[in-house]
Design a protein around this nucleic acid. Structure first.
Lengths: 392, 392
DNA sequence: TATGTAAGGACGGTTGCCTAACAAATGTGA
DNA sequence: TCACATTTGTTAGGCAACCGTCCTTACATA
């Protein structure tokens, strides 16, 4: 045995598992406390100690830091009469900070808002962006953010942006064709410009985060499918976004869903339609809002329902392998309810159940989002919550 | 604003983000050092400090612990002449410990081995298991492990077991029908029985881990599809196994791949065949080894190739949504090369490429495993490596 | 009124990292 | 040839953050 490498491992050690310093430990524990306060509401220090596994001493210390930071406040003693010294409740001051969020999904206008930590919208602003690209688009985004930050009566915790395109976890836009952005370090640029922490992510991913945090998510994972001009998906597994090898995870819109070699039973979906991506039969060619509208236009209600069901069935067929491979507990649809939340969703769920094994099909959910159209905004807010407070 | 919860979050705080103690920090850093030594071969303390971001002081301290544990050894000074004091190399003692691994994928015999840390097999043993179920099967497994541990001339670092069935991350077998195991805490049971650390995981998952660690994996993620009596898949994303909501991730074998409503172009795969799971047209009904053998039996080479390509195409269709949704850089096939590594693989790759968008299809790989039939064993060894040393 | 229980704070101890400084071993250039 | 720069690995001192233990406070109950 020589002193050489013990075997031929060509792969370099990836995911360079950063070092952990005491202050990181501290920050982690701080996040645990905030997480509990966020999800479970006001608690006593002793409650938090039990929930986190830390000692009361440590939690007390942590809480006192948070008190001086103004992130939490004491809310008096607990009402319930129990034995022992009554607990003084500590609560997250959702009224003390706000979050600025911007949604760039729309090609015509960018929609922004000031939100409370609880996710409710306080102020709205939007700005024309039609036709703006490159630096001009960044400019418009910057001033919208500035305007929103100015409109907030409270200190702003940070800025969250959801944008179409391929975006790295650190907020660098690899490509966003509709804005003409390529390899643009948008988060860094905005952070510098605004003097505030800025987080940027793909809009489908922010939607998934928003649903996971503010929605009715039940399990540890979900996929959110956003149906609009196109189709995008965001996947959360074990509470963490899936980014993919080249940050392009969730690109389900251009999976082939209609194939003339497969689909011949009366050709219910017609010939595979050409897609903007240059191929034919992509999921987007049947599932996007314009595609669905075209399909049901002028049909009788019954025929329209049948047409929607055909689209849904295609969706279910595409979803089945994904749901099976990941053992995903639920898939959430976002988009126009009148199109999605009827025969389409039912047929998709039926196909999904029909085409997966019982252990999967017995529990899988396929439902509409529990958030309104601000889902993308609140998702962008979660970026800030998660980045600044460690809360998801 | 009252003292109530700030909003209606029904979801309890999941993934209870365990507390971090100083000793955990220490263990983490220890793993970082071992990881580097494992993947990059012998290094000096100063090299390790640069690679990990830790101080030379801290690394020295860690290395001295590892030296007294016997896990690493000093290998003399570095040969290359550079300025400054010559470095003393420190290397992982792959010759000082061994790992016991057992593969339960085969219904007739359980195959075990003693491996070096480098993954090479030193000793082999196997035991009859045909017909054994429940406690008797556990018994047989225990004595095989004992025999292997006895056959190792070196101290055994731990025991890794790959088994079919649904298995939790902590080694509890939720269900493994062919062994009649249900809710069996196998890892805990064996750990107690053998006095050694035991790790248990699904065999498809161990295969994925093995490929990721010892194989030619290039990216941060991969899926390994094991084709045998059935079809199983294991998925590694960002270096971590995907377990799924109910630990059933990777169950691709029973996704519908043949549907009489879809497939009518000359019915090349025939009618959807009934599957053991009670439904019809599952991937397993066309892709399992027996199914493929039956299909090509007695055909001319050309016809056989066409038949294999039809199966491959079905596989590609099932894979496309998964690869797209996760942005998976590669899919690896495990199983009989003479069946899989020809027209079948090529057709699957062609279908996969044809049915995904360019950013995906341009880079995705579909290849045979780079490990031999010991892939499952070395994967089980990785369980130990990862569990005991934090190395993957 | 006495007792038990729970909350929260104060004090000391341990772990594990960092910075700074230093000794040893080598190459480099005047 | 010799001083000096460079790199390695070690020693010493200090800081951050955790824990365990003990204490006071404040209530419920018998």
């Amino acid at each position: 045995m020589t002193a050489d490498a013990p075997h031929a491992l060509r792969r370099p050690p990836l995911r360079p598992t950063r070092k952990v310093l005491p202050e990181h430990t501290r920050a982690h524990h701080r996040s645990m406390v905030l997480q509990h306060l966020f999800h479970s509401g006001p608690r006593s220090r002793a409650d938090l100690a039990r929930a986190t596994g830390l000692t009361r001493v440590t939690v007390s210390d942590l809480v006192s830091s948070l008190l001086t930071e103004g992130l939490v406040s004491e809310l008096g003693v607990r009402a319930e009469g129990r034995v022992g010294k009554p607990a003084t409740l500590v609560g997250l001051r959702t009224d003390a900070f706000s979050i600025v969020a911007v949604d760039l999904a729309d090609d015509e206008r960018m929609h922004g808002a000031v939100l409370e930590l609880s996710g409710t919208v306080r102020e709205r602003r939007s700005a024309q962006v039609q036709g703006l690209t490159g630096a001009a688009a960044v400019e418009a985004l910057t001033s919208l953010c500035r305007e929103l930050a100015g409109a907030s009566p409270l200190p702003v915790l940070g800025v969250g942006v959801g944008s179409p395109g391929v975006i790295t976890p650190d907020g660098c836009v690899v490509q966003a064709p509709n804005r003409g952005w390529y390899d643009l370090p948008l988060a860094a640029r905005l952070t510098e410009e605004l003097g505030l922490p800025v987080h940027v992510a793909n809009d489908a991913n922010t939607a998934a985060l928003g649903e996971f945090t503010y929605g009715d998510a039940t399990g540890g994972g979900l996929m959110v499918l956003t149906v609009g001009g196109g189709v995008g998906a965001g996947i959360v597994l074990d509470g963490v976004l899936v980014h993919g090898d080249s940050h392009a995870a969730g690109e389900l819109g251009h999976v082939t869903a209609v194939d003339e070699r497969d689909d011949v039973d009366g050709a219910p979906l017609g010939r595979p339609a050409p897609c903007a991506c240059g191929r034919t039969g992509c999921l987007e060619t049947v599932l996007s809002v314009p595609a669905i509208r075209r399909r049901v236009e002028g049909l009788t209600p019954d025929d329209a329902a049948a047409a929607l069901a055909q689209v849904g069935r295609r969706l279910g067929i595409v979803l089945a392998p994904v749901v099976s491979a990941l053992n995903l507990p639920e898939v959430v649809l976002r988009g126009p309810r009148e199109l999605l939340d009827g025969p389409l969703r039912e047929a998709a769920l039926a196909a999904l159940r029909e085409r997966t094994m019982p252990v999967i099909s017995g529990t899988v959910q396929l439902r509409m989002t529990s958030l309104d159209e601000d889902g993308a905004l609140s998702g962008a807010a979660v970026l800030v919550l998660s980045g600044q407070l460690g809360v998801t």
